[in-house]
Design a protein around this nucleic acid. Structure first.
Length: 290
DNA sequence: CCTATTTGACCGGA
DNA sequence: TCCGGTCAAATAGG
């Protein structure tokens, strides 16, 4: 399972604050060298902030990447579309394969006029089997070779997501926590069973997760993946391992997104609860279920 | 053999 | 007609 680095809001605030500091220090009367230096710092802060935003967990809104022309009662575009930039690290650079919770199949690549890098076209692997029409386009950024522009088109209608824990906000009563285990029996049917999973259990197992990714098409839910080195006694991991095609819905409380513990905590006042091995972020999920 | 990727051909909107 | 997006045959690889 691929790990995706996650940053928290504090890092974002730190970066932005730092950027603001640099802006404040900017003095038109200062030497060009000094201001160049400051400008570089400002740009760097903004760049880092953007990177953090690209990785940060989305919570409260249904559409973290709103369309520009999403106005009033105007006709919707034929297909929803949103873009984001993804920064890659180390070895990912060579073979860009950003794990976003869905499986994609490449179906084309084009050189784009005026662009240095070609654009790659992907569609959902389950297009043929489940008629899922989601697609995405990936193009290396010209400004930063570590950044990829990713444009998503269409919503996923497919039901499979391998080896992911799926936290769902929907239809929950307060202070309940359960795992819905979904097994894809065949291409058309999904068998679902509910496994109780209390906050106590979360705590006793010291459940820690890497946030894998949060995608706009999963805006009311999020994918988490288990830490690979905590597998032995951890019940959920056993469940995960029981089938390649298992999908686990890890359900929690809220009656509304706004009141969601995620929207509260996902403002990532994640401080002490977090075991931070920079730059990866681990989240003790027990705090979200109290 | 099956599935995924590559890549030139093709299509259609501007 | 140009160009971005998709198709599909060829190819790769397990």
């Amino acid at each position: 399972m691929e790990k995706v680095k996650v940053w928290n809001k504090e890092s974002l605030i730190t970066e932005l604050t730092q950027g603001k500091e640099f802006v404040n220090q900017f003095d038109p009367l200062a030497s060009p060298e000094e201001n160049d230096f400051l400008l570089e710092k400002i740009l760097s802060s903004l760049d880092k902030s953007l990177s953090i935003l690209n990785c940060i967990v989305y919570n409260g809104t249904n559409d973290p990447f709103p369309l520009r022309d999403q106005g009033q009662n105007k006709k919707r575009k034929k297909m929803q579309q949103w873009s984001k930039q993804v920064r890659v690290y180390g070895t990912e650079l060579e073979s860009f394969n950003h794990e976003d919770g869905y499986s994609w199949r490449k179906y084309g690549q084009k050189n784009i006029l005026g662009a240095i890098h070609p654009r790659a076209y992907y569609r959902c692997t389950h297009r043929n089997t489940q008629g899922c029409l989601a697609t995405k386009q990936v193009q290396k950024s010209e400004q930063d070779p570590l950044v990829f522009d990713v444009t998503y088109k269409g919503m996923h209608s497919c039901k499979t997501s391998q080896s992911s824990i799926f936290i769902s906000y929907e239809n929950q009563k307060p202070n309940q926590c359960q795992i819905k285990k979904q097994r894809v029996e065949n291409l058309n049917t999904i068998k679902e069973e509910t496994v109780p999973f209390t906050p106590l259990q979360c705590e006793s197992h010291n459940a820690q997760f890497f946030v894998n990714s949060i995608e706009p098409f999963a805006s009311e839910s999020m994918y988490l993946s288990l830490l690979p080195n905590q597998e032995e006694e951890f019940e959920m991991d056993k469940i995960l391992k029981s089938s390649e095609s298992d999908r686990i819905v890890f359900s929690s409380t809220p009656t509304s997104i706004i009141d969601s513990p995620f929207s509260r905590d996902w403002d990532l006042s994640v401080n002490d609860q977090l075991d931070v091995h920079d730059p990866n972020l681990m989240i003790d999920i027990s705090e979200y279920f109290t």
